[in-house]
Simulated assay, not measured.
Amino acid sequence: MTQPTQTPRCILALDLGTTTGWAIRGFDGLITSGTASFKPGRYDGGGMRYLRFTNWLTELDRRSGPIATIWFEEVRRHAGTDAAHVYGGLLASLTSWGELRGIPYAGVPVGTIKRHATGKGNANKDAMIAAAQARGFNPADDNEADAIAILHWAIETRGGVA
């Protein structure tokens, strides 16, 4: 007796920031990636960045989903206060969006992602881009490269279980 083939679940990987890197494995098994800018406009209120982010997540879920799991880069230390505030706001928006939809989410430590992608837990941006290119991707920047690395980590380790 043959085992039924299992349809791949839709997995979203994010590198949160003003320029958010993303990579998604759709239910069809295809991987796509890119970046999305959440830089505030000149006349935007303080919450518009986060509103645009949640609307973007909803649209991504509608077009490529349904999203089954979300993995994101878990940053413990930021170089600047503004970056920390943006990350915290995006993380709060992401987790509340996931909670509303019953979508599990989890952070992956930066060193874990870098080690999986390059063999070095302190790999620089160029090394992360080169690792994505070695997998056949052409990332626009290190944000997209990090998201690709997160997605491959999640797939290859079954979310750290393998």
Rank of each mutant, 00 (worst) to 15 (best):
Q3Y: 05
Q3L: 11
T5R: 13
T7W: 03
P8Q: 12
P8L: 11
C10T: 15
I11N: 00
L12E: 00
A13R: 05
L16M: 14
L16V: 07
T20G: 08
G21V: 12
W22T: 08
A23L: 09
G26V: 02
D28L: 09
T32R: 14
G34W: 09
A36Q: 14
A36G: 02
S37H: 04
F38G: 06
P40G: 00
G41F: 05
G41Y: 05
G41T: 01
Y43P: 02
G47A: 13
M48L: 12
L51T: 15
F53P: 01
W56D: 00
W56R: 00
L57Q: 05
L57I: 01
E59T: 11
T69G: 03
T69Y: 13
I70F: 00
W71F: 15
W71E: 07
F72I: 07
E73Y: 01
V75L: 01
H78D: 04
A79D: 10
A83R: 07
V86R: 02
Y87G: 03
Y87N: 05
G89S: 02
S96I: 13
S96K: 08
E99M: 11
G102M: 03
P104R: 12
A106P: 00
G107A: 06
P109H: 08
R115C: 06
T118K: 01
T118A: 09
N124T: 05
A127T: 10
I129L: 07
I129K: 11
Q133L: 04
Q133E: 15
R135G: 04
R135A: 14
G136P: 14
F137Y: 13
N138M: 11
N138W: 07
N138K: 13
A145N: 03
D146Y: 05
L151K: 12
A154R: 08
A154N: 09
A154E: 06
I155W: 05
I155M: 15
G159I: 02
G160W: 09
G160S: 11
G160H: 13
